[in-house]
């Protein structure tokens, strides 16, 4: 892009792994730990976050030229809180059981650092298309992270995936995976794994090519 900001495509691909909100930016940890004890709850949360992220990015991007520096955060917060309220009400109206399961973690999307960070870093500076691409990329990254953690916790803890049994019936469900300690441990180990893979990739990319290749 001419003004030094990443292009639309770059915004999208960045969100998936290089700037993954959970494993790289370490933002939005609260819902990551809280709703990942089953895949369906995790995916509903991803949909809710996607809705709020995309809508706030669009609105912020549309009004980006009117924003004054010291009113920015106020405007972002107002926008995000309004969309979270809408998302919460929609969930309560159409998927009531899931909304009860997610409980207070849907309103906590308001203070989810991912959304304010994206508004600040991208939406307030770039066109609507780039902002939407950024929101979609971050959502995919967030979804992948949550899916990874929720899969581990649900398969080991309940023996099911999306509610369907996948483990043989002799599997003694590791109840600890469903409880808070399992959440922290899974996230820590997966973060370690992601760091390890990231370092290996970067080392390979930076390694000098062998002669004659």
């Amino acid at each position: 892009m001419a003004n030094g900001l990443p292009s639309t495509l770059k915004r999208f691909t960045n969100g998936i792994l290089p700037e993954n909100p959970v494993f790289r930016q370490i933002l939005g940890i609260c819902p990551t730990l809280a709703v990942t004890n089953s895949m369906d709850a995790a995916m509903t949360m991803v949909v809710a976050v996607a809705f709020v992220l995309i809508c706030s990015n669009i609105v912020t991007s549309l009004i980006r030229n009117l924003l004054k520096p010291h009113l920015r955060i106020l405007v972002f917060t107002l926008t995000i809180a309004a969309f979270v309220t809408i998302a919460d009400r929609l969930l309560a109206a159409y998927v009531y059981e899931m909304s009860k399961k997610l409980g207070p973690y849907v309103p906590l999307i308001i203070v989810n650092c991912i959304i304010i960070a994206r508004c600040e870093v991208c939406a307030s500076r770039q066109r609507v298309v780039a902002s939407v691409a950024d929101a979609l990329g971050q959502t995919v990254g967030f979804g992948l992270a949550l899916a990874a953690i929720a899969s581990v916790r649900e398969i080991l803890g309940f023996g099911t995936w999306f509610g369907l049994p996948v483990m043989p019936s002799i599997w003694p469900s590791w109840v600890i995976m469903i409880l808070p300690p399992g959440a922290f441990l899974t996230l820590g180990l997966l973060m370690g794994g992601a760091n390890w893979i990231g370092r290996a990739w970067r080392a390979r990319a930076a390694a000098p090519r062998p002669a004659g290749a």
């Binding site: 370490i26 808070p180 300690p181 399992g182 959440a183 922290f184 441990l185 996230l187 820590g188 180990l189 973060m191 370690g192 794994g193 760091n195 390890w196 370092r199």
Partner: peptide
């Protein structure tokens, strides 16, 4: 090395 920073904090938090 991969566990330094946030990862080891999460593991300790789990314990």
């Amino acid at each position: 090395v991969p566990l330094r920073g946030a990862a080891i904090t999460m593991i300790i938090a789990g314990i």
